[in-house]
Amino acid sequence: MKTLTFLARSGPYGSSKAKALLDMVLSAAVFEQKIQYIFLDDGVYQLLAGQDPALLAAKNVSAALPALELYGVDQVYLDLDSLQARGLSTDQLLIPASTCSAGDISKMIAESDMVFSL
């Protein structure tokens, strides 16, 4: 088993990066790898509850996030600095995520076999 770390750094809309990374996470989960899914920078917006992208003619990218648990992805992290810098708080989140710091993220990257950032 390998440790794969995914850095979600893009907002849920405006590009397909959030969806592309989520698809990678779910595929890796099907192969039962150890996964660390870390939301930072604008990626923290992906975790917000109550998204309604209907006016964008876009699908709700985050609607699949509650399924992560079913896929066995239980290591979901959130960079607290990124959240606070955007005036958001943990009670606005769609799914539970452990808060972490830039130092924690450095450690997780160092302990990974592979890292993917989108």
Partner: peptide, 11 residues
């Protein structure tokens, strides 16, 4: 092919 080929590449 699918993303499974990417996972396989990681492994």
């Amino acid at each position: 092919s699918g993303l499974g080929q990417w996972v396989d590449a990681c492994l």
